[in-house]
């Protein structure tokens, strides 16, 4: 159970040097959660990873379009639900067509979304008129 209420809203340039910052925010949130009875260290790593992967995806998509673009990341916790939204301005992609990694013939890329899907409870990607939103939910 976790009764915290928290809202974080960050906008970063589309540069990978900010991945550490974004991942660290997730790690700190996990370590400071009130009334969380699960494995706090594991949650900290997983939030760091999921935020890093989601932001990397958004940076990659955006950089192809406009190098001076920004990525917005929001983290909201309420009623035992952690909600992450990552907004990008790229062309977008179809989440349903992203395949699982081939574990017998592993490739160097394609593991990021697998991590997000495996470690979190729900992942959706919505294309809107002015941006795309990757929404990730984890029940605490």
């Amino acid at each position: 159970m976790c009764n915290s209420v928290l809202q974080v809203d960050v906008i970063i340039p589309t540069q990978t040097k900010y991945l550490d910052l974004i991942g660290s925010i997730g790690e700190h949130i996990a370590k400071d959660l009130d009334d969380f009875s699960g494995d706090r260290e594991a949650l900290a790593y997983h939030l760091n990873l999921v935020l890093t992967e989601a932001t990397t995806n958004a940076i990659k998509h955006a950089t192809l379009m406009t190098p001076k673009d920004t990525v917005r990341i929001t983290i909201h916790i309420q009623d035992n639900e952690l909600n992450i939204k990552v907004y990008d301005h790229g062309q977008g992609f179809d989440l349903e067509t992203v395949p699982l990694p081939d574990f017998d013939q592993p490739k160097e890329s394609g593991m990021g979304l697998y991590f997000i899907r495996t470690l979190m409870d729900s992942v959706t990607y919505t294309k809107k008129s002015d941006c795309n939103v990757l929404e990730i939910i984890k029940h605490l």
Partner: peptide, 16 residues
Amino acid sequence: RFIDSSGLGALLSGYK
């Protein structure tokens, strides 16, 4: 203390 999918990919590239 932290590695992401691109880090794993870099090591896998070296392995291959």
